[in-house]
């Protein structure tokens, strides 16, 4: 019987805490029974989502907080990242052309693409004044 427990970590919006959050989520992914490749997929997806919150939602204001929750429901492992910064609008999102970005010497812009490749489902929601990204992967 899988646990209904929700695990939670709250960190300041600084890249300094990326490693801690990655390890937190990877630990629980491992306990849930994922193999090492899947654990790495989840680790990277969470990193990319949190990096986007730090850069875009909070614009590197490290006085702000990010909440990361993790649980298992209906044979799905989920991670929810919540912030109170600027919303991300997935409408108008276009998959990046990597060759083009290299030609233009762009440093980033591939995080959302990676998250979608690595996880089975990704949802963005606005709840009251907070933004949520919920990513799930089937067990």
């Amino acid at each position: 019987m899988p646990s209904r427990k929700i695990n939670k970590i709250i960190v300041r919006a600084s890249t300094e805490f990326l490693g801690e959050v990655r390890d937190f989520v990877a630990h629980h992914a491992g306990l849930s029974g994922f193999d090492s490749t899947e654990v790495e997929d989840i680790r990277l997806a969470v990193d990319e989502a949190m990096t986007n919150v730090i850069k875009h939602a909070y614009e590197h204001d490290s006085s702000k907080l990010i909440t990361v929750q993790q649980g298992v429901e209906n044979s799905e492992f989920w991670v929810r990242i919540t912030d109170s910064g600027r919303s991300f609008n997935l409408e108008g999102y276009v998959e990046p052309d990597i060759e083009e970005r290299i030609r233009l010497r762009k440093k980033g812009g591939v995080g959302v693409y990676l998250i979608r490749r690595l996880m089975d489902n990704v949802e963005y929601k606005k709840v009251n004044s907070r933004n949520e990204i919920k990513m799930t992967k089937k067990l």
């Binding site: 990326l18 990277l44 990096t51 290299i102 010497r105 762009k106 440093k107 980033g108 995080g111």
Partner: peptide, 13 residues
């Protein structure tokens, strides 16, 4: 992560 890959993307050309 993509932040690391981004460094290679920005300078290879």
């Amino acid at each position: 992560s993509s932040a690391g890959l981004g460094v290679f993307m920005a300078y290879i050309e």
